[in-house]
Design a protein around this nucleic acid. Structure first.
Length: 466
RNA sequence: GGAGCCAUCGCCAAGUUGGUAAGGCCGUAGAUUGCAAAUCUGCUAUUCACCAGUUCGAGUCUGGUUGGCUCCUCCA
């Protein structure tokens, strides 16, 4: 299969460092607030990657961290009076619940910064010993970017020391303007800090990921992991710095491939805290089913920016509905074996750097063809069973279409309403029998007013929630 | 100021190595239906922001113009 490597800036054949095994590390969230749609998109992108690799026969080990030591978390501690652990565990739990609602599998390894302090300290000490890092008078530890001749290779930034335009304030004790903090010494007594040989303090953001990767992945003599992922905004400086410190500490490259997902935008602008245009996942999940959100957020290629709109979401729901209508048509039943050509086409297109657009069009084609065949021969049992198997495969590979089809169309309808609907439908069937179309149409309108659409089929009158 | 990405039908969106524009929504004509809905069939970009170049041939390559976004500060 092929993936797009954002360091080489092109689509390249994927060859794992250890045959048939794939190690992926994705930068996870800093747990100081609720996850927004952007977090969802990143998780979704790499979930899709993991599923695709597995479907291609690879054994995948996925790592995704939680940054649970950070300035913003400390700020939250000060604001709320709660302790750090209370805050981080609350948001971690919430994050995992929301990702589960989107059909995202848990990572195999979910390291936290607080649980990786030993590895972090060891890596910093190694760098200090090699003089690739240095301690300044305050106790802060900086990485010396001039010691890494390849610094800049990840983001393709010119490794000059000019950066006169940079908005980063310079610390006078830094050897080079580009040097970044590996360790921040604590300033006051109330600071949350940990003891080390070099100073009392806490880790910088970049070192966490490098240390966690070294702790949990073995890699080979050339690379620590196969694929390092994250949002496009992490390319610089985060991934550049990770790569540099790991290279200097271990003597080999951090990751063989780098993949970055595009942003979720609102009205053409990146969704972010500072712009105040965040759409939180918890709010989105109140309004829409997780599966619909998943389908929608995955409908645009992972590398492209995604302009979120509720209208588009509704249109995408209609597209998903068609899959479920077909499933309704062939349910209940037992799946037989999948259509080989369909499976191959889907695997091939997803294997081409996750070409979801083609994958979705293949599914639309399957739906149309199957409906057509079923129109011609409604009792084609073999086709029904094969289609069920095809849909099972879609669910496994792409993560939608797995629900029981009748319940899919009844999401958000309570039992009382269900009973009322059934009663009205029964009444309408009687009215239709006696050709009382005025009454039957009135019932249909009444249901429609409540967001319930009905359709008369060969199998009887069916209803769905709009 | 520096670096990069993007620009395809009314809307969303595919389009590796250049070879003659997927799919969805909407619209529309029909089949089916008591009428609808659902389903199916047909139609719907000689054209890929603009200008120039390379080529037998470019949405795809090169240069430029315009517009949008992102990174250089925490960020998925």
């Amino acid at each position: 299969m092929y993936i797009y490597d954002s360091v080489q800036k092109k689509k390249v054949p994927f060859e794992p460092i250890i045959s048939n095994n794939v190690s992926i590390y994705v930068c996870g969230p800093t747990v100081y607030d609720d996850a927004h749609l952007g977090h969802a998109r990143s998780s979704l992108a790499f979930d899709l990657l993991s599923r695709t690799l597995k479907a291609h026969g690879y054994a995948v080990t996925m790592g995704k961290n939680f940054t649970d030591i950070d300035d913003k978390i400390i700020k939250k501690v000060e604001e709320t009076g709660k302790n750090m652990e209370e805050i981080t565990s609350f948001y971690i739990t919430r994050y995992l619940e929301e990702m589960a609602a989107l059909g995202i599998a848990r990572a195999d390894i979910e390291p936290k910064a607080t649980e990786s302090l030993g590895a972090i300290e060891a890596m910093i000490q190694t760098l200090i010993d090699k003089d690739d890092a240095y301690v300044i008078s305050t106790g802060d530890v900086y990485f010396d970017t001039s010691k890494d001749s390849k610094y800049g290779n990840i983001s393709h930034r010119v490794a000059d020391d000019e950066d006169t335009q940079s908005r980063v304030a310079h610390t006078s004790e830094k050897r080079n303007p580009k040097d970044f903090a590996l360790w921040k010494a604590c300033k006051g007594e109330e600071d949350i800090c940990f003891d080390t040989a070099f100073s009392k303090g806490r880790p910088g953001w970049h070192i966490e990921c490098s240390a966690m990767i070294e702790k949990h992945f073995t890699g080979n003599e050339e690379y620590s992991i196969d694929i390092h992922g994250g949002g496009a905004d992490l390319l610089f400086p985060h991934h550049e710095n990770e790569a540099a410190q790991s290279r200097c500490a271990t003597g080999h490259e951090l990751s063989k491939y780098w993949m970055h997902n595009g942003f979720v935008q609102i009205d053409g602008e990146k969704m972010s805290k500072s712009l105040g245009n965040s759409f939180f996942l918890k709010d989105a999940l109140k309004l829409y089913d997780g599966e619909v959100l998943r389908y929608y957020l995955n409908s645009v290629h992972y590398r492209n920016d995604f302009n979120f709109s509720e209208e588009e979401l509704q249109l995408n729901k209609k597209r998903l509905d068609k899959l479920y209508r077909l499933k309704k048509r062939i349910s209940p039943g037992k799946a037989s074996s999948i259509n080989k050509n369909f499976k191959k086409s889907l695997l091939d297109t997803m294997g081409d750097d996750l070409n979801i657009s083609i994958a979705l069009s293949l599914i639309d084609e399957l739906i149309a063809n199957t409906n057509d065949a079923l129109d011609a021969n409604p009792k084609d049992k073999a086709l029904k069973k094969e289609t069920l198997a095809n849909i099972e495969f879609i669910d496994m590979l792409l993560g939608f279409g797995g629900k029981e089809p009748f319940s899919y169309f009844q999401i958000g309808v309570d039992d009382a309403l269900k009973e009322k609907i059934e009663t009205l439908i029964a009444e309408r069937v009687e009215a239709k029998k006696s050709k009382d179309f005025v009454r039957s149409d009135a019932i249909r309108d009444e249901l429609k007013a409540q967001g319930i659409n009905i359709m008369d089929t060969a199998e009887g009158t069916l209803w769905e929630k709009a």
